[in-house]
């Protein structure tokens, strides 16, 4: 009995040392300790052992059992480590190979630019407003102080849809709709497509504008200057700007806003600013009293500003031809993939 146990124990210890993976260890465990395992088989003979010897044999068997279990556990741990190493090696991939994920596309720079400007105006308390793109002639012209015989009417080469209806030539038409629908204080911006009957390297029959309108008690021109300062410095960084008196029928006083040319800083031969040192970026002014009175709003003043999104986008991204904007060429669209908005 003792010999049998000894032989089984020693053989098992050899087997354990020879085991190379967790599966082999598990096999040995089953073979030795299983219900019908070798150990049980040997211990079946315990019945024939004298009662006197039985406790000693039992203790001897237990010692062997513990030794074998210990052996299985420690060898088992080594085998598990080996298995894991093998698995890790097998599962490794070339992490530098391209990702399977669909590459994201991009927002059009007109959208990116619109969002940048909308975000700045939004922080200044301006809310988004909109109006129809097929607009009545009245709202597009008369309502914003451009009567039929006004020279400015010819400046807008207008598309007609049906008698009395045009494709809006500017987002200023939204101003008047808002002035009539809402009560001051009004702080809105309107972004969207506008249409003019012209097409060349710098003009497109469809382009985009953003119009800001602020009407309240005691709005001053200095407020306009302050808002312009915020808007321009957020768009172009710290930049010198000036308001040059100009004429738009819906504002009085009206001004065009120039920023100092960021290419040449006003020195030397420069294509961007045509060597003037200044780049025209937007138009603005104090809301013309005609608009306020005809909307029935009294005792208030206001300012309005309007800019061309294409022009801004072309300046910000250094695009040289407006037609790129509307051709959907992937080589163009992909350029602006990583730009934030």
């Amino acid at each position: 009995m003792r010999d049998k146990l000894e032989a089984l124990g020693n053989q098992t210890l050899i087997d354990i040392e020879a085991a190379m993976d967790a599966a082999a260890i598990e096999q040995i465990r089953l073979r030795v300790f299983g219900k019908k395992g070798a150990l049980s088989e040997v211990l079946k003979g315990l019945g024939q052992v004298s009662a006197l010897e039985r406790p000693q044999i039992g203790a001897f068997a237990n010692t062997w059992k513990e030794r074998l279990e210990e052996g299985l556990a420690s060898r088992g741990q080594i085998c598990e480590e080996r298995d894991l190493d093998k698995r890790l090696a097998a599962e490794a991939v070339d992490v530098t190979a391209p990702a399977r994920r669909l590459h994201p596309g991009s927002l059009h720079i007109l959208t990116q630019t619109t969002r940048r400007i909308a975000a700045i105006l939004g922080r200044l308390g301006f809310e988004s407003a909109s109006g129809p793109e097929i607009e009545t002639e009245y709202f597009n012209f008369e309502a914003v102080n451009i009567p039929a015989d006004h020279p400015a009417r010819q400046m807008h080469d207008t598309f007609f849809i049906k008698p009395g209806h045009v494709l809006r030539t500017h987002t200023s038409s939204v101003q008047m709709r808002v002035l009539r629908e809402k009560k001051p204080p009004i702080r809105i911006f309107a972004a969207g497509a506008v249409y003019r009957c012209e097409a060349d390297a710098t003009h497109s029959p469809l382009f985009h504008q953003i119009e800001g309108l602020f009407v309240d008690k005691g709005v001053r021109m200095s407020d306009l200057k302050g808002v312009l300062g915020e808007l321009l410095s957020e768009l172009f960084g710290t930049v010198k700007f000036r308001m040059r008196p100009s004429y738009f029928p819906f504002v009085e006083p009206g001004a065009e806003v120039d920023i100092e040319c960021f290419k040449c800083r006003g020195v030397g031969h420069c294509q961007l600013c045509r060597s003037s040192g200044w780049i025209e970026v937007l138009g603005c002014g104090m809301v013309h009293p005609f608009l306020l009175t005809s909307a029935g709003v009294t005792d208030v003043t206001g300012f309005a500003l309007g800019l061309g999104v294409e022009r801004m986008a072309m300046l910000l991204h250094e695009v040289n031809d407006i037609r790129h904007m509307f051709q959907g060429d992937m080589r163009f669209l992909q350029l602006f993939r990583f730009r934030g908005y």
Binding site: L102, H103, P104, G105, S106, L107, H108, L110, T111, A193, S204, P205, L206, M325, F326, G328, M330, L333, Q334
Partner: peptide
């Protein structure tokens, strides 16, 4: 959402 799905935004002239 469309950008995340791999599409590029374009702008047509509507006409």
């Amino acid at each position: 959402m469309m950008v995340a799905l791999g599409f590029y935004e374009t702008c047509t002239l509507a006409f």
